[in-house]
Design a protein around this nucleic acid. Structure first.
Length: 801
DNA sequence: CCTCACAGAACAAAT
DNA sequence: TTCTGTGAGG
């Protein structure tokens, strides 16, 4: 693989072939070019040399990018394996692969170098691991492993872990890695980091990683950078190999990624970077907007192509977004335009508190779904609620669960980050490699085996003294009876079991799925959750079942573990339509006909912390985030804020976001119910400080919606609040948070029944009101719940595994 | 060694 | 509010 010779027959034939294709009548050979606008077409046809494609939101960037790749191939400039195409998310990579497939048929199956920075770097690093002192089967640590490891190192330093938490150190080290700094290259300005011990701990951490034959996320890139800079031959080989380089979301690259790209493109300079400086929202993760702002200097003779025709949003939405982002300084500048019909203005509404906001949005989603107010019905799949911070999702989940509105949370606590999944994975990791000390530490005493801190320390000491892994240390400790009683016996059993599983992984006597089930069974891990009577336990068992099911898609355990380390997202595409809830960050690159943007309050959005930590820079990034949010909407965008919000369980009064003041009045329609600003709710202060748009609304006519009855203004508040009491449609099997509940369970309950609810746990039915149950939950108190969201308690007990 | 109860801090974003 | 770490008691 690593010795591709570009002078082979195909490569040699490529050039003349391309001349033919590009010559007399390119259109005849490339009908896809006709579907592009002039700017896109220029971007597609400018194949050689550095190109910067400045693509505003919704301007057909992915289309241009994929068509460009297709064009490289059909003109014979490059074969699929000679194109390096980098994205930031797996989602984006998948999307690109699909679009390419649609464009070119199955011919693109062989694009091995389309992927995220991290995925590509892993692939490369496995080949050259020995150059940085790793073995090719190195393991990839996730954040959790990383912090546990750092904790140990910090403990050795005997520092006050309240003031100097390992988490902070992890952040500092990540920051250095993002800037491509190895321990020996930390600038003196950073020497004081982490009480002056940051650099030393960083070095110790790297040494420990090497001992463990492990790399963290940052290392994947950093190691490749080291390899490229220290091994000219390796770099030269890949420079020849990747004849064309394409980078998506260039504004999000950090220094390490930038250097990596510059090295690889250094020879031929056939690099095409696509990005939008207005959508740079990952500064906190080390992204450097400077990379995109500086592109023309970095790559001399670069061609800059602007994609400015927007195909996504209506003019009002576009204008509102543009007006907002105008407040930022130092932009490259773009003027988005559209041929779309005018459409609705951006809607703005204030609420009394966060619960009211969630309720209103729930009502609104249902109204839009039914197609009231003279608009066509909108599918739930076409609506999204975009929040600044994930904790804001809670209010919506609670509300939607109560009214029975199907929703999906995107990018929430992810499947592979859940406790039970990580535990199970640790067992799998150990079965595959008995040297995985971190995995061993995680599961020695899970389930409880009577092996506490003391016992673990003994094992560690033994292992260290003999220079062996923890599993071997444990074996020695058992043999020499360094432990006693229950612990000794249990540890012996565990070590034997590990040996057995490891043998079975190697012999491949059983399928890996059977093996996985056996491991979870014999380790007592499944039993542990079966005996657990907390409300979460059934859900966890369900997740474990899902995990085993996911295994079926892989050849073996190793392959699966590799996949999981990198692909941390789990998009379950299910048949039923659902409204999406996600963070603004997760929403980048997506689009929805209808978008809700709640929580526009100073301190929440823009986030106080961003402003405290990064000042004006932070504020501008927040503003870009707002811009990203608005530009996700195709037809209808609704911004909202609340006067009061619970923060740490304490009520706090909030002020509308300064971004609201920056929205151009001409493109905003204010929906605020009259009562709210009349002082009746004690929110007069809010009106005084609010934007001109709001202040105007308080005195002007609110019924300006083209003759339509306006549900927000006329019967007003009361109707909004009472409507939710009405009956819902017929119950369907609904999945919320992973547990599917059958509709047959509906209303088969009577008072006194013990029931289980996915979120609230166990409780007793104390009343029945229509399709709703009044339930006294053991932990969550009394709630009114749509009947189809609970199951009989005995049914929840035997969620099978 | 385990479990429970209490105090105190924590809500920013993710490959 | 909810999670985490700590200390007493079994």
């Amino acid at each position: 693989m690593s010795s591709y010779d570009e002078s082979d027959a195909f490569g040699a034939a490529a050039v003349p072939l391309s001349r033919r294709a590009m010559g007399a009548d390119p259109k005849a050979h490339a009908p896809y070019l006709d579907t592009l606008n002039p700017a896109q077409r220029e971007a597609v046809e400018t194949l050689d040399g550095p190109v910067l494609m400045l693509a505003g939101a919704g301007t057909g960037k992915t289309k241009a990018l994929t068509t460009r790749i297709a064009h490289l191939m059909t003109t014979g400039r490059a074969r699929p394996n000679e194109i390096l195409a980098v994205t930031f998310t797996n989602k984006a990579a998948r999307e690109m692969r699909n679009r390419l497939g649609a464009l070119m048929g199955e011919a693109v199956e062989g694009m091995p170098w389309l992927g995220t920075f991290h995925a590509i770097c892993v692939k490369l690093l496995r080949r050259h691991a020995e150059l940085v002192g790793l073995k090719t089967n190195f393991t990839i640590l996730d954040t959790d492993d990383q912090i546990r490891l750092l904790k140990q190192l910090v403990a050795v330093e005997d520092m006050d872990d309240k003031r100097w938490p390992a988490r902070m150190l992890a952040g500092i080290i990540d920051g250095w890695k993002n800037r491509a700094l190895t321990p020996d290259a930390i600038p003196t300005a950073d020497a004081q980091a982490f009480d002056g011990r940051g650099v030393r701990l960083y070095a110790a951490y790297q040494a420990r990683l090497r001992e463990l034959n492990a790399a963290d996320f940052g290392d994947l890139l950093l190691h490749m950078l080291t390899i490229f800079t220290q091994n000219e031959d390796v770099l030269a080989q890949y420079r020849r190999w990747f004849r064309y380089i394409m980078v998506d979301e260039y504004q999000d690259t950090n220094v390490a990624q930038y250097l990596w790209l510059r090295l690889l493109a250094g020879g031929h300079k056939n690099i095409c970077c696509v990005g939008d400086d207005d959508q740079s929202i990952y500064g906190w993760r080390g992204a450097e907007v400077g990379n995109i702002l500086r592109f023309e200097q970095d790559f001399e003779g670069a061609k800059v192509i602007r994609l400015e025709q927007n195909y996504r949003s209506t003019p009002h939405i576009l204008a509102a977004a543009s007006g907002l982002i105008d407040a930022n300084k130092g932009r490259l500048g773009k003027t988005l335009w559209t041929e779309a019909e005018e459409g609705e203005k951006l809607r703005l509404i204030g609420h009394w508190d966060g619960d009211e906001e969630a309720r209103w949005i729930g009502e609104e989603v249902e109204a839009l779904q039914r197609g009231t107010r003279g608009l066509d019905p909108v599918s739930l799949d076409d609506m999204a609620i975009l929040v600044r911070a994930s904790h804001q999702m809670r209010a919506f989940e609670d509300r939607f669960l109560t009214i029975g509105l199907p929703y999906r949370v995107i990018g929430g606590p992810r499947f592979y980050e859940r406790l039970e999944i990580r535990d199970a994975m640790a067992y799998f990791r150990l079965a595959v490699s008995l040297d995985d000390d971190l995995a061993f530490e995680r599961v020695v005493n899970t389930p409880k085996r009577g092996l506490g801190d003391k016992a673990v320390q003994t094992i560690q000491r033994t292992a260290r003294a003999n220079g062996v892994s923890l599993v071997e240390g444990a074996r020695l400790a058992v043999q020499t009876k360094l432990l006693s009683g229950k612990g000794l016996k249990e540890l012996g059993i565990l070590v034997d079991a590990l040996d057995r599983w490891h043998g079975q992984v190697r012999s491949e006597a059983d399928t890996h799925v059977e093996l996985a089930e056996m491991i979870l069974d014999e380790s007592g891990y499944t039993a542990m959750w079966q005996n657990d009577k907390t409300p979460e336990a059934p859900g966890r068992l369900e997740n474990l079942k899902e995990l085993v099911k996911a295994l079926e898609n892989f050849e073996n355990l190793q392959g699966f573990l590799e996949h999981v380390a990198l692909i941390m997202d789990n998009e379950s595409s299910d048949a039923e339509a659902k409204v999406s809830i996600m963070t603004l960050h997760a929403a980048k690159g997506l689009e929805f006909p209808v978008v809700f943007l709640p929580g526009w309050e100073d301190g929440l959005f823009p986030s106080q912390r961003a402003m405290d930590e990064s000042g004006l820079k932070g504020l501008e990034e927040e503003r870009r985030l707002a811009y990203v949010g608005i530009t996700r909407a195709e037809r209808l965008a609704t911004v909202s804020f609340a006067a009061n919000r619970r923060v740490y369980g304490q009520w706090q009064s909030q002020l509308p976001s300064r971004f609201i003041d920056e929205l151009p009045e001409d493109h905003v329609e204010v929906l605020t119910p009259p009562g709210l600003y009349g002082g009746a709710y004690g929110a007069a202060g809010m009106a005084a400080s609010a934007s001109p748009a709001i202040a105007g609304a308080a005195t002007s006519d609110l019924h300006d919606r083209a003759g339509r009855a306006d549900v927000y203004n006329s019967p007003g508040w009361k109707r909004l609040q009472s409507r939710s009491q009405g009956a819902r449609g017929l119950a369907q099997p609904v999945e919320a948070r992973g547990l599917t509940i059958d509709a047959t369970a509906v209303s088969s309950f009577t008072e006194g029944d013990r029931v289980f609810h996915k979120k609230f746990g166990y409780g007793l039915v104390s009343g029945i009101e229509g399709d709703k149950l009044k339930v006294d939950f053991e932990k969550a108190g009394t709630k009114h719940i749509v009947a189809r969201f609970v199951v009989a308690a005995d049914a929840a007990d035997d969620v099978p595994f």
